[in-house]
């Protein structure tokens, strides 16, 4: 999936040699990242350390996802980028424009047309198909980080499958609130082995990860970790038998397309508390409107 047509970065330094490779990263780096991705796919849910590079966007703004996308994208790919479910949020626009510039690839807002979908905080409502890759931007890849700050300790906990502490946290929630008060970045167990952070997607999206037909790749640039869920992999949200995992339910339909059973954004209409709920997934909303 590589091409080596050197593109000149518009507005780049005028000194000799200041040009960029296809999809920004040099081929050595892409090979290194692809090796990490292959290892991640081979051990679903395991965080593979990789030598994350500086990217032209800041850490915390999707550098992990961008590096993963840059390493797998080819000239024939069709790219979709979403942030908060929408194609037109600023960061999504910026990342899409980046790949148009450095890889000159086709882009789309249509979920079903895309071969690679890079996302921050959502999984599209339209079910993904075989052959598609969903690339998540991940801020904190370690699900145990808030229970144990030390990397040396958390790696040992994963190695020895010591996940009792994670359930202590869930137990405390139920004892205090009567239910598990975790609404996003809700931890999952992958293939009965590794506890994994699904990135800050709402827990509403967790079930979409389970047995997905698409390949799911997770990139954390600042924390230098890549992990993966291969297609048709078991992904279970942590819970108790008598307090099973549940997703958010919205009482109203989307005010624009009328859909139910999807994730909604609350839009404030005025300063007197007026609001309405609309689809978080803008492409899905548009498709629903076109159908009716």
């Amino acid at each position: 999936m590589t091409a080596s047509n050197n593109l000149t970065h518009e507005g780049a330094p005028t000194m000799a040699g200041a040009t960029y490779n296809f999809a920004y990263l040099d081929e050595q780096t892409k090979r290194m990242i692809r090796r990490a991705i292959l290892k991640a796919i081979a051990i679903p849910g395991y965080q593979v350390p990789f030598a994350s590079r500086e990217m032209p966007m800041p850490y915390g703004w999707g550098t992990g996802g961008v590096q993963v996308t840059a390493s797998i994208i080819g000239p024939d790919d069709v790219l979709k980028v979403i942030d908060q479910g929408a194609d037109d949020t600023t960061n999504a626009v910026s990342i899409r424009a980046f790949f148009q510039k450095v890889a000159n690839v086709a882009v789309t807002t249509r979920t079903h047309e895309a071969t690679i979908i890079q996302t921050r905080h959502r999984i599209p409502e339209t079910p993904l198909k075989s052959g598609q890759v969903l690339v998540y931007q991940v801020p904190i890849p370690e699900p145990l980080r808030f229970l144990e700050p030390r990397e040396t300790e958390t790696r040992t906990m994963h190695a020895l499958e010591e996940y009792g502490l994670m359930h202590v946290k869930l137990y405390e929630d139920i004892a205090r609130h009567g239910y598990i008060a975790k609404t996003y970045a809700y931890p999952v167990k992958v293939e009965d082995r590794y506890v994994m952070d699904p990135s800050p997607i709402p827990k509403f999206d967790n079930p979409k990860m389970h047995m997905s037909e698409a390949l799911q790749l997770f990139g954390a640039g600042r924390e230098k970790r890549i992990y993966a869920i291969p297609p048709h992999t078991k992904v279970v949200s942590l819970d108790f038998e008598d307090h099973p995992f549940e997703v958010q339910k919205f009482s109203e339909p989307c005010a624009i397309c009328g859909s139910r059973g999807i994730y909604l954004d609350e839009v404030i209409l005025d300063d007197r508390g007026g609001h309405m709920f609309v689809c978080s997934d803008t492409d899905f909303c548009e498709e629903q409107r076109n159908e009716h």
Partner: peptide, 12 residues
């Protein structure tokens, strides 16, 4: 990055 939108999580 805290400037970036977080409204999906905030909604939850």
């Amino acid at each position: 990055h805290l400037k970036l939108p977080h409204y999906v999580d905030f909604q939850a």
